[in-house]
């Protein structure tokens, strides 16, 4: 457990990560055993293994950590969380690092720069309609972020349309105003905290 005394001995960046993670991720308990890096399906594509990243967080290496592509290659499969001998909430930490990287403006410069764009496009749709809208997501994301790759996904998009697996227009929820009010209030609370 990260007590206040424990935290007072950690790097400022370590504290920043803990503060932005919803429940205590037990990060200070890391043994550097590498079970996470060994279990990760996209481990070979990451510029640092999760384990290395945790050592870097402990060392206060804020910028290199937030510039790393590692969090963006996390597929949220929870294999590392399941196997971690110290019960570290690794996936949650990866989400925290993504948020911090976006806030710090490093996200768009990482070697996995497409990921934040994809996430943002997805969120825009959900905020506007209440549900995801896949056709809109794919077209907007590719046209805005990866125009040259659009052709590569076109056959799959066409295949989905042909099999009636894509909606041509979004299906907004009924009480969209209610959802928007909730999300707006959440944004205000968040802003008040980070201010």
């Amino acid at each position: 457990m990260a007590t206040s005394a424990t935290l007072s001995r950690t790097s400022a960046f370590f504290r920043e990560v803990i503060a932005d993670t919803p429940t205590d991720p037990h990060l200070e308990a890391c043994l550097q055993c590498g079970t996470c890096g060994g279990s990760c399906p996209s481990g070979p594509d990451m510029d640092h293994t999760p384990r290395t990243l945790f050592a870097m967080i402990a060392a206060g290496m804020r910028e290199p950590v937030l510039r790393s592509n590692t969090p963006w290659y996390c597929v949220s499969c929870y294999a590392c969380v399941e196997r971690c001998p110290q019960d570290i909430h690794i996936t949650d930490v990866m989400y925290t690092l993504k948020r911090l990287a976006i806030k710090a403006g490093y996200a768009s410069q990482s070697s996995a720069a497409r990921a934040p764009g994809f996430s943002q496009t997805f969120i825009d749709h959900v905020e506007n309609y209440g549900r995801s809208f896949e056709l809109g997501l794919i077209t907007r994301y590719y046209l805005r972020h990866r125009p040259l790759d659009a052709l590569k996904v076109a056959p799959i998009g066409m295949g989905l349309l042909k099999r009636r697996r894509l909606d041509l227009s979004p299906r907004p929820i009924r009480q969209l105003d209610q959802l928007k009010a909730i999300l707006e209030r959440a944004r205000e609370i968040d802003n008040a905290k980070s201010a």
């Binding site: 550097q32 055993c33 590498g34 890096g37 060994g38 070979p44 640092h48 293994t49 384990r51 290395t52």
Partner: peptide
């Protein structure tokens, strides 16, 4: 045997 070789930092 799949493992992170932690001294190299690679899977």
């Amino acid at each position: 045997i799949q493992v992170e070789d932690t001294l190299i930092g690679k899977q």
